[in-house]
Computed example of a mutant assay.
Amino acid sequence: MRSFALHDGETLIVNGAVLRVPVAAEVIVDNSATVLRGDAIMRAEQANSPARRLYHACLQAYVGTDVVTQQQRIVTDLRTVLERQGDDAGRAACVRFANAVASGNYVHALRECLTLMEQEGVPARAIATMLAA
Rank of each mutant, 00 (worst) to 15 (best):
C113P: 02
Q71V: 12
H56I: 01
Q71G: 04
A33C: 05
L36D: 01
P50L: 14
N99S: 05
G121E: 03
L36W: 03
Y62A: 00
S32H: 02
R20P: 06
L78D: 04
A25T: 15
A109P: 11
D77F: 14
R53N: 09
T65E: 11
A132E: 02
L36T: 03
L82Y: 12
G38E: 00
V23A: 14
R53I: 13
V122I: 07
L110F: 00
G90Y: 01
I74N: 02
G38Y: 11
C113K: 00
L59H: 00
E83K: 11
A132L: 09
V107G: 01
V29L: 03
T115G: 06
A61L: 05
P123T: 00
D30L: 13
Y55T: 05
R53A: 13
M42S: 03
V18M: 08
D66T: 12
T69D: 10
Q72D: 04
L78T: 05
D87Y: 02
A128D: 11
V67Y: 02
A100G: 04
E26W: 14
A89V: 14
R53Q: 14
L116H: 01
A132N: 09
I28S: 09
D39V: 10
M130N: 01
A24V: 15
R96A: 14
T129N: 09
A132I: 10
G104I: 02
H108F: 13
Q72N: 04
T65W: 10
Q71Y: 10
V107Q: 00
A100E: 08
I127S: 01
I127M: 01
N105Q: 05
G104A: 03
A61W: 03
S49V: 10
Q70V: 07
C58N: 07
Q71C: 13
L131M: 07
L131E: 12
A40G: 08
N15Q: 01
D87N: 11
R79L: 15
E118A: 15
L54K: 03
L114T: 11
C58E: 04
L59G: 09
C113A: 15
I74S: 08
R84T: 14
M117I: 07
N15W: 02
T34E: 03
R20I: 14
A25M: 13
L116E: 00
T129L: 11
V27P: 06
A92P: 10
L54W: 09
D87T: 06
N31K: 10
T80Q: 10
L36F: 10
E83Q: 13
L114S: 06
I28H: 13
A57N: 12
A40Q: 04
G16T: 05
A132V: 04
D39G: 07
A33Y: 00
L82E: 12
T34N: 03
L114Q: 02
A102G: 15
A128R: 09
D87E: 05
L131Q: 08
R20K: 12
D30H: 15
V27R: 03
M117N: 02
V68A: 15
Q85A: 10
V63S: 00
V23M: 13
S103F: 08
M117T: 01
V75T: 11
C58F: 07
